[in-house]
Design a protein around this nucleic acid. Structure first.
Length: 498
RNA sequence: GCGCCUCUAGCUCAAUCGGUUAGAGCAAGUGACUCUUAAUCACUAGGUUCAGGGUUCGAGUCCCUGGGGGCGCACCA
């Protein structure tokens, strides 16, 4: 971007600040000096000196650093609000304390500038812990002005395009990403405590698998071959169980070449975990514990409120089969072995949009998604999916037309998806072949046959349970926001154009 | 991809039925002010009303095309 482009919207203010930069340099100063040593964070100062009596001063010399957020100048005394990564602390900058030259230099600072401050801790008569500054140095000059101090930055487009400004201006943005970090670190802690090993598997795949989704395509120049970005973590992680790693998890970015919405970003973060010798019932307990512990860590409560609806995340969550839920919602008995014509009639009666070539299993899933899922508000495990729509899950122990799979649904949204994993290589090969037929028929989201994965299974995948959690959706739930863009630092937007 | 809504100063918002010179607060500049808390007071400056066409005596306002964004639908997690 050229200088003119940056300058054009707010030439006056930027020019004025640039002139200060030049003046500082002309006077032998440095507007962007290297490093600064501080003794305390703003939050530490506030906490340590909270008991101090109002109107009293200490001889405790401290050094802090941060961005100037507010200035309240009143002649020979200026109050400033300094913010660092921990919080805010007030600066008490008096001409008598600083001396005329230093005070004038302070007066030259602008909102948004980063400064290092040395001074003694005091508490004002009104009771605010402050630093009575005796040395202030510019650490980084800001050329662009801050958004409005009271309303902050509310333009949604600017908030996402210029997330740095959003983070400066809006406490809510800072809160949401604190929740996100809390969730991620809690998840890692829980898995670590349970003996799971965190691993990293390839993002570039020769063949996308592990989910039904359209992948992004890319190309490797040196090898002159097409590659896809991964759409799931699943197949590599299960290969690791074949290798004898009994408990593994990965938290990683996956990519799906689909539409954008309040719930979809083309790149998003998945957690997947696999546990040898477990089945999907173990995964249900695990999901309950993960979600509750993350909620406690992030919010200190198991309750969550989004758009006026309050939900209790306390386990145990009801465990209901998809077939029972459909019966309850519609009065219809459905099963993968129900004649296709009958399922079509039911779907049409319920005004369920359907693909003309849909299988019985697909129709049942469509009926469930239309009539049941949106109404599942409090956390619910939906169990036992049709086999055709779950090519990586093992056949149900009691009904081979179904698989041992569940989704955890909260507020009508899928939060987690889990199986008793399919570990029979012959069955897996047949499922892949069935998927390949769908792909050949034009389904851009169907799996192909992953021969190496089948070969891995032929070495013996122990019985295992696996679970996938959409981290962004979990963070949405716990941060209590209704758009995925709020929980992704730099959500995907169309390129901006002038 | 489709439908609806939206875009005015750096930021947050006004502008009656299409009417004359597009206003205000914050931020900025100048001045006053040594206990402020969104400090206060006075004055000043700040605009390609997203872009391009059109209708009209006259367009921020109406129409068309394009762009960005939001919401919903579709796809999906």
């Amino acid at each position: 971007m050229t200088e003119e482009n940056v300058a054009s919207p707010i030439t006056g203010e930027r020019e004025r600040r640039l002139a200060k930069v030049q003046a500082i340099r002309a006077a032998g100063g440095e507007p962007y000096p290297v490093r600064f040593d501080r003794t305390h964070s703003a939050a530490e100062i506030s906490a340590i000196y909270a008991p101090l009596e109002s109107g009293s001063e200490t001889d405790d010399q401290v050094r802090v650093a941060g961005r100037i957020m507010l200035l309240r100048r009143q002649g020979k005394l200026t109050f400033a609000t300094l913010r660092d990564g921990s919080g805010e602390v007030q600066l008490f900058v008096s001409q008598a304390e600083m001396g005329n030259d230093e005070f004038a230099a302070f007066d030259d600072l602008d909102l948004g500038d980063w400064v290092g401050v040395g001074g003694r801790v005091m508490k004002t008569r009104k009771g605010e812990v402050s630093i009575k500054a005796n040395a202030v140095s510019l650490l980084a000059k800001a050329l662009l002005p801050l958004p409005e101090k009271w309303h902050g930055l509310s333009d949604v487009e600017t908030r996402f395009r210029q997330r740095y400004v959003d983070l400066i201006a809006n406490e809510e943005a800072r809160r949401i990403f604190a929740v996100r970090f809390s969730v991620l670190s809690t998840l890692r802690k829980i898995f670590s405590e349970r003996g799971f090993v965190e691993v990293e598997t390839p993002v570039l795949h020769a063949q996308a698998g592990g989910a039904t989704a359209r992948p992004f395509m890319t190309h490797h120049q040196a090898l002159d071959m097409p590659l896809t970005l991964r759409i799931a973590l699943e197949l590599h992680l299960k290969r690791l169980l074949v290798g004898g790693m009994e408990r593994v998890f990965e938290i990683g970015r996956v990519f799906r070449n689909e539409g954008l919405s309040t719930r979809h970003n083309p790149e998003f973060t998945m957690l997947e975990a696999y546990q040898a010798l477990a089945d999907y019932t173990d995964m249900m307990t695990l999901v309950e514990e993960l979600v509750v512990e993350c909620a406690q860590a992030a919010n200190g409560t198991k309750m969550v409120t989004i758009d006026g609806t309050t939900i209790d995340l306390s386990p145990p969550w009801p465990r209901r089969t998809m077939i029972d839920l459909i019966k309850e919602a519609t009065g219809h008995d459905v099963h993968p072995e129900t004649p296709l014509e009958k399922l079509i009639a039911i779907a049409d009666e319920l005004e369920v949009a359907r693909n003309p070539q849909a299988s019985a299993g697909q129709l049942i899933l469509d009926i469930y998604e239309k009539t049941v899922e949106p109404n599942l508000v409090s956390p619910t495990f939906v169990l036992d999916y049709p086999r055709e729509v779950s090519p990586l899950a093992r056949a149900h122990r009691d009904d081979p037309a179904l698989v041992e799979r569940f989704e955890a649904v909260v507020m009508g949204r899928e939060l987690a998806n889990a199986f008793s994993e399919l570990n029979d290589p012959i069955d897996q090969q047949e499922r892949f072949v069935a998927q390949e037929a769908l792909a050949a028929a034009g389904d851009a989201e169907a799996h192909g046959v992953d021969h190496d994965y089948v070969r891995a299974l032929e070495h013996g995948l122990p019985p295992c349970g696996g679970v996938g959690v959409g981290i962004d959706r979990l963070v949405m739930l716990l941060a209590q926001v209704s758009s995925i863009r709020e929980v992704i630092l730099f959500p995907h937007l169309r390129p901006e154009r002038n």
